[in-house]
Design a protein around this nucleic acid. Sequence first.
DNA 1: CAGTATCCGCCATGATACTG
DNA 2: CAGTATCATGGCGGATACTG
Lengths: 126, 126
Amino acid sequence: MDDIWQSLGRERAASPFASGCASRVVLDHVTSKWGVLVLVALDEEPRRWGELRRRIEGISEKMLAQTLRALESDGFVLRESHGTVPPRVDYSLTPLGRELAEVLVPLVRWVGDNVHRTTVPLAASA
Amino acid sequence: MDDIWQSLGRERAASPFASGCASRVVLDHVTSKWGVLVLVALDEEPRRWGELRRRIEGISEKMLAQTLRALESDGFVLRESHGTVPPRVDYSLTPLGRELAEVLVPLVRWVGDNVHRTTVPLAASA
DNA sequence: CAGTATCCGCCATGATACTG
DNA sequence: CAGTATCATGGCGGATACTG
């Protein structure tokens, strides 16, 4: 086998190429349409629900809630609800989430910096 | 505004937080369920159609074709068809694709290495 | 303010069959 | 071998209304 995910003494590493692997689930959450943006937005700074909604243009309430719950369940996002009225809820990255952001942000940044070099039709309009 | 994608002299950078931005399109291709795996598989080494299909467990022919066409159209993947019979087609990363892989592979690798630290139910079975 | 509940369309995805 | 064509489905995702 030539699976670099198994070789080189990385026995603990899970291979996303295997169909049943849990890393695919996490990868799907992390790289989901909105997951990426939520993680990056929270890496910029902790934010409240409404702030997130405004920061991430076009996200619906449903998808924001759904994405936040998935990322919280994975252990990447921390949800802090102050029991006040009116309600106030703060979202931030956990230490694990911050580690993830260290490798995710460079990707998002690279794409942002290099769209104009791709041959996506829309990219020309930059 | 506190948009790090606009500040710090990065005027050419596109912000994926803006709903109409082309970087979202590219980001969606790159972070799509199968897009990630295809790019990483091709970063390991150039591969033929059938090799890709076998490397990426669970991908259907339709999705492989569709994903490859999207990534080729973006300029990340090079398709080389030798006009032989039976047909032989090689896929590889373009220079741009290789640059992308430099930031994408660390992400995939991190997830693979750290699934066991997440709280995904399935992850415990590792 | 910070969500949940509900309805619904549509398209992404997958299975199958077929072809040069 | 390397695809394309076709069809069926389910769930992703959006819009709207409602609540503590």
